[in-house]
Write a protein that binds this DNA or RNA. Sequence first.
DNA 1: AGCACGCCGACT
DNA 2: GTCGGCGTGCTC
Length: 747
Amino acid sequence: MQTKFLRVQVALPGPFWQPLSYLVPDDSLSVATDPSLQSAWLADWLGWRVRVPFRNQTRIAVVVGVDQDDGVELSKLKPLLVKLDQEPVLNSQDLKFLRWAANYYHEPIGEVVMAALPKRLRDGEPLALPGVMTWQRSALGQSISVDQLSARAHKQRVLWQALSNDQAWSSSQLNASFSGWQPLVKRWVEQGWLAVKEGPCLAHKSLPNPVRHLLNDEQQAAVTSVQASQGFGCFLLDGVTGSGKTEVYLALIEQVLAQGKQVLVLVPEIGLTPQTAARFEAYLQQPVVALHSGLNDQERHCAWQVMRRGEASVLLGTRSALFSPFADLGLCILDEEHDLSFKQQDGFRYSARDLLIRRAHLLNIPVLLGSATPSMESLHNAQTGRYRYLRLSQRAGEAQPPHLSLLDVRGDRLQEGLSNKALGQMREALAAGGQVLVFLNRRGFAPVLLCHSCGWQGACSHCDANLTYHHASDTLKCHHCGFQQPKPKVCPACGSAHFVAMGQGTERLEQFLTIQFPEHTILRIDRDTTRLKGSLAEKVTQARDGEADILIGTQMLAKGHHFPKLTLVVMLDLDQGLFSVDFRGAERMAQLLVQVAGRAGRGTQAGRVLIQTHQPEHPTYQQLLREGYAGFAAQTLGDRQIANLPPFSFQLLVRVEALDSAQAVAFLEAIKALLLAVPVTEPCEVWGPVSAPMAKRQNRWRYQLLLQASSRASLQAWWQAVAAAVYAHPLANRVRWSLDVDPQEMG
DNA sequence: AGCACGCCGACT
DNA sequence: GTCGGCGTGCTC
């Protein structure tokens, strides 16, 4: 038999645009050289973890291809060191999906594959979780009484006595009660007294009491539509706040679970609270695996493993849970589909919504997107028939839709951003026994220290941004690079010692309201007051139970929470959304308004929403008030079509950062020249280079180039036509640059 | 991305 | 004379 050198292609984190090849060790050759065993050879390697030599060290990689001749010289190839695990970590469908994602987002395959593995597996830890073994008396063990043990072996007798309760003991349970149990347990296993079981690594916990609900006609119609789906289908569930989208999800999940299949539910980053998981468990009466940023590496590994093995059927997670492997996935759900947190904003800039749809498509299963304020993209897809449109128009129970009104504050004196009219309304609502939420979208309102004499204000020397004044530490800080300095004693420009703190923060608002409403309790919920683990959930519970009369909140209070006693919402600074540089500014503002308004009047009392504004005649407000979100969306889609903006076109943003701004611009100009030289049939446009919204960050100048085309395919093809030349450009290695496919924010 | 190699200022 | 600054170039 002639010698054939076999190679595998592996995904390794790093900027490698194709997988790296390694030779397989000699002892694997006999299988592979026989052509009839090619498929066995494939199954033996594809998706397996391997340890490979890399430079002068070793790395963990995943085999993504087998024996493809990629043109790399044999002499350059190294043999891989060892194959890990007893099974592949990713199956061929997972790999196909990940390859598609890498290709679409122009992200190195190694980075994408590693995003699909929990950190412990990326680091080469064993696949099996330590501590998931449980021990229980075997049939033989049942007959062994403690008296058969030596009377002098006190430790043994205590341990055996404990094990005689017929429960399965995990190592963590044994650790908690006994020391030195391992050798004894090991011996008893060898003697056949104990049976080892590899149990689920999730702690057994008791399920909440069952909760059932009846569906109204609209909910039932939505459930029926999705159930009728044969194979892949994408559904948009457009349901007003409080209309009971979750009940639809639960009914569908229940049905899929009854078929023995699994379900993946994605929620926004701050939407996943223990209450959400508990609600799912109460209805479904089975454990729900939660996967979110609050978990440690072991817990993530556990969740990953449990879903992959099919030991649990429901995964409820944030963005990255999208990559989890499943034994048999039957349904995907993505709640609050308009939410920006589904788009990863750094590194691998994927959209969890778009990738979830792609994954469902590859698996040929239905996917359901839900929102009270669907994105223009999804509404457009529903209108063109790519998605099936499902509508829930009624609030569940007796709850009335909130009443929205504009509060014209032009010419009024504002105290900490609040008008006297708003304060008056708050007093009335509180006197009537209601709860009040003051909503502050703090962006752009960070407190700035200003010299009262000359107007000087601190600017960061490394970024194109103002320094923010921090009262507690009496310092000026840059939120973008971490630069900080003590508050100057006198103004660096004019020498005056008279400073004023400008701008609005929730902290100052809280101080002000404490003075205004001394007899009422105030609860502030924002990034600063919820930094500790679990404190958001705790505060939300307090708010929901009516322990505070006045709530002060930012973005994180806008989503999904239910405050039955809330009767009045005051929105302080929505106006800025009207004048955003981003064409999606108004869309975001409208979504925020409707979502926050949805917090009010979910109990028996009708809710009111006051929007403080300097622009009461602005068409966006007028439209939202007259026709609601649907009318706003129809108008916005019309405008987008005329302007040929997404969702009527597709965009790709090239971002560049460089210490030398000339290099950044030169690189983008070079890319633009390459793009313009490509003959294209469909309309393709390129704008820029322009300065990024924050022109300088951490001493690097930031520029961007926007590509736009009439279809995803033509946009991809256009970039592909220049990609090789761009990567080969001398500046490509001298500046930091990245691609953002389907950018959601221009920052 | 890391992490080496490589070629010029302040130190025992 | 060296230690080390981070520019630049490669990784199967």
